[in-house]
Simulated assay, not measured.
Amino acid sequence: MATSDYFLPEVKFYNLLHREEEREMLPLCADQGIGVIPWSPLARGRLTRDWDATSARSETDEFGKSLYQESDRQIVDAVAEVAGARGVDRAQVALAWVLRNPVVTSPIVGMGRDKHLDDALAALAIELTDDEVEQLEKHYTPREIAGFR
């Protein structure tokens, strides 16, 4: 089979805080049978902790500081609420949301600790309800495309 006979996966920036690929690219990928490998599905850790909490990365990541806005706090809070109601970690909920998109083949998840791998694997077993998805998505506001120019 020649390389031109099949499609390679598309790598995209996609998470609950940045959903711009849903407008055109993800529907195109679905139509053409192209898998999507999202990077930063946890929004550089923003979706895994309280909005005001900091980490070594959040303190030093200048590019990351430009990606998110104060209104994203409501989405981070919604992730915390859904995770709390289910008794699971926030990372599991955020990853489960990404994984529910049928064009997503495998998100790129950083594994700096064993717990990160545990959360990624546990997310595979989580099936979010329609009400949970609505709760997670309702505060999203469109923004500029990020990650490339």
Rank of each mutant, 00 (worst) to 15 (best):
V98R: 00
G45I: 08
K65I: 06
A91K: 09
L67H: 08
V76Q: 09
D61A: 02
D89T: 10
A85C: 12
V93W: 02
E81A: 15
S58W: 11
E59A: 06
R90L: 04
W51R: 03
R57T: 09
D61P: 12
Q74L: 13
S71N: 15
A80R: 13
D72W: 15
D52G: 05
D77P: 06
V98P: 01
F63V: 10
S58T: 15
A96N: 13
K65V: 04
R86K: 09
D89K: 14
D50T: 09
T54A: 01
V76P: 02
L67W: 12
T48L: 01
Q92G: 02
V93S: 00
A91E: 10
A94S: 08
A83K: 11
R73H: 11
E70S: 13
A80C: 01
E59G: 12
F63S: 03
R73F: 05
F63W: 10
D50P: 10
A91R: 05
T48F: 03
E62A: 07
V76I: 14
V79W: 11
L99V: 10
V98S: 00
D77L: 08
S66P: 06
G84M: 09
G64I: 13
R46I: 00
G64W: 05
L67T: 14
V98H: 02
S71W: 15
F63D: 03
V98M: 02
R49V: 11
V82S: 08
D52A: 14
S55K: 04
V88N: 03
A83C: 14
L67K: 07
A94W: 11
Q74P: 10
S71T: 10
S66A: 08
R90H: 07
E70G: 08
I75H: 01
A91D: 07
E62L: 09
Q92D: 04
R49F: 04
Y68E: 03
R46S: 02
V82N: 01
V93F: 03
Q74H: 10
F63I: 07
V82A: 01
S55P: 05
Q92C: 10
A78N: 02
D77C: 08
D77F: 06
R44W: 11
D50M: 03
